[in-house]
């Protein structure tokens, strides 16, 4: 049995240790904020935080996450919307929205480490999160706006 904490709640699962965290979150725990995009860490749609670090959950084997603290988009805004989520709404960032939970989790991780990022910081941190709708300009603007509020 593997035990971990997801969005502040203790969870247990007895799935195969090789199962990626993304599958566990979506299919076992019903937490569907993290999205399946590519399955090989090329798109960032599945990004969550593990022990405070942004991670592609499609690459994290559940068997290696015993005791881990996992945060998904559902947990990020559980009590009140995170500054990044508010900025996303203010700037109407999403178009189709599929990549946006990963974008927001990556942006929140960036602001944890770099509270006032430059355009270059944002480009470096966010380039692994793809958006087929091309919302990158609004993503960057929203991150700057969130940084002002934090």
């Amino acid at each position: 049995m593997i035990e971990l904490t997801v969005n502040g709640e203790k969870r247990q699962t007895d799935v195969s240790p090789d199962m990626p965290l993304l599958w566990v979150l979506r299919d076992e725990f019903g937490i569907t904020g993290p999205k399946y995009g590519c399955g090989i860490a090329q798109c960032g749609a599945c990004t969550v935080h593990i022990n405070g670090v942004a991670v592609r959950s499609c690459q994290a084997r559940i068997g290696e996450l015993g005791g881990a603290q996992v945060l998904t988009i559902e947990g990020l805004g559980a009590k009140s919307l995170h500054a990044v989520q508010k900025a996303w709404i203010d700037h109407q960032v999403p178009q189709c929205g599929y990549c946006q939970t990963g974008q927001i989790m990556q942006a929140a991780a960036l602001l944890d480490k770099t509270p006032k990022p430059t355009d270059e910081d944002i480009d470096m941190a966010m380039s692994g999160n793809l958006c087929r709708c091309g919302t990158y300009v609004r993503i960057r603007a929203a991150i700057h706006a969130a940084a002002e509020k934090l």
């Binding site: 090989i40 860490a41 670090v53 690459q59 692994g128």
Partner: peptide, 23 residues
């Protein structure tokens, strides 16, 4: 550490990841 950790994609693991184009 300054922007995006290598381990965001390259998980620390003793199990190999042999999938083509995966980290």
């Amino acid at each position: 550490a300054e922007t995006i950790a290598c381990s965001t994609c390259h998980m620390t693991s003793t199990a190999p990841n042999k999938l083509a184009h995966a980290p």
